[in-house]
């Protein structure tokens, strides 16, 4: 593994594709692209927006979790 390698969590199928490519000197471009795309999808999916944050903050304050 190169010194500047970054360990990142990957979906299972993707992980196995990366693992299969691990024998190569470099990770193929299509794998790197797939990884970037999967991470971007995860980031987008994880971003707030689908929930009413103001409502959440109000409840957290009411329960004493936030000042």
């Amino acid at each position: 593994m190169p010194d500047d390698a970054i360990m990142i969590p990957l979906p299972g199928a993707l992980y196995r594709r990366v693992e299969a490519a691990a024998g190569a000197d470099e990770v193929p471009a299509y794998v790197a692209r797939a990884v970037r795309e999967a991470l971007a999808r995860d980031e987008a999916a994880a971003a707030p927006g689908a929930v009413d944050e103001a409502q959440i903050v109000e409840r957290l304050r009411r329960l004493g979790y936030l000042d």
């Binding site: 994880a46 929930v51 959440i56 903050v57 409840r59 957290l60 979790y65």
Partner: peptide, 16 residues
Amino acid sequence: ERYHLSPAETRVLFRL
């Protein structure tokens, strides 16, 4: 209920 937080709520809490 006073201790019951959903993942959406804990995620907001941790971020704040």
